[in-house]
Design a protein around this nucleic acid. Structure first.
Lengths: 351, 351
DNA sequence: TTGTATGCGTTATCAT
DNA sequence: ATGATAACGCATACAA
């Protein structure tokens, strides 16, 4: 049922006819085969240009088995964030997308986007699988149980996580190590010994690794980290506000420093602390993770961990394409990219 | 049992065999046809689940003519984020991408990304055409001459064009109307009657429309707008600084308000005015356009025009899908989205 | 209600 | 060096 009212493109048959050769020859020219007479090649290319011929990618994929598309699955949030400032900032996912698109394009691949909403997860995942040669999964897109199932069906790279997954390739930064450095800094440079870690989703491998590293670093310096379910949140600014409000309401003295699982949460936390009449960093130091672009514009400027976000996307795609193109070669299961500690005002530095 | 390590997915034939029906029946079940016995439908669905069957989208596209993919073409800058301008243009594009992806997903379509670099433009465009049912072109991705050529080959929506293109659908905001409102505000609320408009590139349709709207709005209120080539600049902060410096050097009394073609220019203008010992907004009010994220962080906070960026992406896709799904129905060639006046300190509000 | 057979536009395997 | 022709996996017109 072709409602083909408008731009019906020409096919390889049209080109062949115009050039007076067979479709096989046209195909060979298009795919850069050798053993072709220069004159016929020129003839074919001339016809291609004349007809504005572009190969039908669906047919190509069907025939060759390679669609030259890689898919990026990310979490699409349903609700808007109440802090416009965060909403408008260049977010993690956006940068990853940019990096991934660039890397894919460099190899002649295209990037297909798949925003996952919880209630239509299966539908989106299936659609992506059917359209892509391989997938990149951002953190929290799929549950730990589902990842192996997907990875068995299509080559998969996990972006983020702790690197322990054995079912798929992983590209990540060393979350734990970075947070350990933050803990050391807060204790040794700013003499904060009563600490807290504001977690992202409890199920997020990134958040888990960050928490684990922070706690370990703190203990190494003889500091303590509050251990209360209250500190588990959801990566959002509003979630962080709630945590702080509830914590303040307990009446107990606040920790001297709060490390947050990401920048959004940190910004929310600072907001809530200020509203409670507390000074940041004087009364409570706050740190983030990601180094989103607004981190240096908020007041106080945010001490955080810079991730090479675009490069995460780029690397994920490169790993995936390697796995796709040379399935036999052994590729490291886990790739770790370096982070940079950005010391700004919110920890007490750079006043 | 046997573990199929290589992701070779099953086909409609496998499902048919397992269910004991023909592939036509399987296809019908998958595509929600009626006139199917409930028992057979159940049988097929059971087999689908058992085999984890996902239809091959390439085959589907080949057969049906619809790939259920729409493409988004945008300018991919070569250099990374060392220029603020680049950074902000990233934000715009990213938000559009988000909006577009959401709208596509809601209709069961996927969004394919195509970052265009000047030196490989044709390659990228051809790839996108071959893979997509329709395209969304961001402003400045392709030259005015090329757009009609593309639009003739595949349904196309122009995002943020000037609205005059007759070759493709256009989705944009009403620049002129927004600037007219700014003029009204400056005159009626802040009693500024001697005004100026700091233009972007003289050739920019956006800038032209904004200037035209501002002048019209001012005249409607009995105010005057300085008419001097001096006020034509280039959208940049440094360009705006130069304009202000030259204007101050003339010795003539400055206008009471300066509306700028975009936020970057406004920020530069404020900077230069302050350096000349003038107070903003007290001596000279300044306004911008775009509402970039730093607009609310500069001092004074910047009065400007907010564009619904995500919605631009959403709407572009919706228009495209309508054109795709009902080619016969007449669809407005141009869709205009509303802007919001963001009244902050630089015009004299919100002190 | 269901099955059979054909076509979609390529690539790739044979031939020649 | 080039030409026939068979897949590729699905949707659908036509039969039954």
């Amino acid at each position: 049922m072709e409602t083909d009212s408008s731009p019906s493109n020409s096919t390889i048959y049209d080109v062949a006819k115009l050039a007076g050769v067979s479709i096989a020859t046209v195909s060979r020219v298009l795919n850069g085969h050798s053993h072709l007479k220069d004159s016929t090649r020129a003839l074919v290319l001339q016809s291609v240009k004349e007809l504005q011929f572009v190969p039908n990618n669906a047919a190509r994929g069907l025939s060759s088995g390679s669609k030259r598309v890689i898919g990026l699955l990310f979490v699409r949030t349903q609700s808007e964030d109440f802090l416009e400032i965060v909403q408008e900032s260049l977010l993690f996912t956006d940068s990853v997308i940019r990096g991934a698109e660039r890397a894919a394009s460099e190899q002649g691949y295209s990037l297909l986007l798949g925003g996952v909403e919880s209630d239509r997860q299966a539908e989106t995942v299936d659609r992506m699988i059917s359209m892509c040669d391989g997938l990149v999964l951002l953190d929290r897109t799929l549950s730990d149980r589902e990842v192996p199932v997907i990875a068995r069906r299509v080559p998969t790279v996990l972006l983020a996580g702790n690197g322990r997954a054995r079912s798929a390739f992983t590209v990540r930064v060393d979350n734990a190590e970075a947070m350990s450095r933050i803990a050391h800094h807060l204790v040794l440079e700013h003499a904060r010994t009563r600490l807290a870690f504001l977690s992202g989703f409890a199920a997020s491998p990134d958040s888990q690794a960050r928490r684990e590293g922070f706690v370990r670093g703190a203990l190494e310096c003889g500091a303590v980290v509050e251990d209360d379910p209250l500190w588990f949140s959801d990566y959002t600014s509003s979630g962080a506000v709630q945590v702080i409000e509830r914590r303040v309401a307990t009446g107990a003295p606040l920790p001297q420093a709060i490390a947050c699982a990401n920048d959004q949460a940190a910004i929310g936390a600072i907001h809530a602390l200020k509203r409670s009449g507390l000074r940041v960093p004087r009364d409570v130091a706050v740190t983030g993770f990601d180094d989103i672009s607004v981190a240096r514009h908020v007041s106080p400027t945010l001490t955080t961990v810079h991730q090479p976000v675009q490069q995460l996307g780029t690397t994920a795609v490169q790993v995936l394409l390697q796995a796709l193109q040379s399935p036999k070669r052994t590729i490291p299961l886990s790739t770790v990219l370096p982070t940079t500690l950005m010391l700004r005002q919110s920890c007490g530095c750079d006043q």
